[in-house]
Design a protein around this nucleic acid. Structure first.
Lengths: 173, 173
DNA sequence: CCGATGTTTCAATAATTTTTGAACTTAGGC
DNA sequence: GCCTAAGTTCAAAAATTATTGAAACATCGG
């Protein structure tokens, strides 16, 4: 099933044409796009993941670009993101020049990595900040209820920070 | 501590001036803005919440607008959002015309409500969609690995839907 | 090294989301 | 009922975020 098309005279190497997405592929992509949205992950990234997820084997750069009809730049950045969060793996065939991509075996692990990368830095950065705010408020002899609130917030943050390694274990554990 | 300012001749009712935020208030707002960002909640909403959180008592519309220097529209929409997610309460004093707002006692409960409202609808909407995709893929006699992946995805979604009431209990429970 | 293929970068553009403010609605006091 | 203060709505503007594509870079086989 290959449309020859594209004037293609004798010259080799006219860039191949790709089928556009099938209805069921679109539906799965919509699902991933929606879920990704919750975590603030851009559409193009979710689409790439969905395509790899529903494809019977690893795909290379050009296939991804062709089937999704998106720019090189987006594909490159999307793959970078997915790689960075260990959501995809490259399968480099021996004699081949190009890399081919497929989803990491565990989607669950991927999601954990994603969450981790969003939440942990925020919690870490917050720690000193929250402590300063609490100190400030106590100094200025503020309302006891406010002091209480901020104390609780601080405790929360610390606990979350302690628990994080358990709930969102780093890749090597 | 009240700046008289504003040419204010004898006429009553020049709109009052409000102090701009103190450094520690800004720092707390930054914290909330950052956390809200993870959940896709806009800056203005986080700022309003932060202000109520660090204020010694409930604040009315004009105070919020004045101290944060934001538009009426934003304050109105922000309060609507926070109300909708049960993150703030109004304290209506007897003889008073205007409502005054303060944070709900439990920030934890508020966050749960927020998460719930984002995640649950997505999971529910996904269910039939995922089932259709799986059926489609099975019909077209696709790669067994893909079928396996989609089956797992379906199971996950169902489980999440079952567990949701436990992890993200609705307000009345 | 060279030339060609494959990929990344990043400034410009497009798309999306948030904020504003003026017109409109609602509710209370008289 | 009318008038006014209080709050809401929503179209337009501003701000932010995502995407594109052309130029730069990297890497491999010869």
């Amino acid at each position: 099933m290959k449309l020859p098309s594209e004037k293609s005279a004798g010259r080799r190497k006219s860039r191949p044409t790709f089928e556009s997405l099938q209805p069921h592929e679109i539906e799965l992509a919509d699902f991933f796009v929606r879920m990704a949205g919750i975590l603030g992950v851009p559409r193009s990234v979710a689409e790439i993941y969905a395509l790899l997820y529903i494809s019977p084997g690893p795909l290379d750069f050009d296939h991804i670009q062709g089937r999704l009809g998106m720019s090189k730049g987006s594909v490159s950045q999307g793959l970078k993101f997915l790689r960075g969060h260990e959501m995809i793996l490259s399968v480099k065939e021996k004699g081949a020049r190009r890399e081919r991509w497929q989803p990491t075996p565990s989607l669950a692990a991927s999601l954990v990595a994603l969450l981790r990368s969003q939440v942990l830095p925020a919690l870490e950065q917050a720690q000193p900040s929250l402590q300063r705010v609490l100190a400030d408020v106590q100094q200025h002899g503020a309302n006891p209820e406010v002091v209480e609130r901020l104390t609780r917030l601080n405790r929360w943050n610390s606990r979350a920070l302690e628990l994080a390694p358990l709930l969102l274990p780093p890749p090597g554990a």
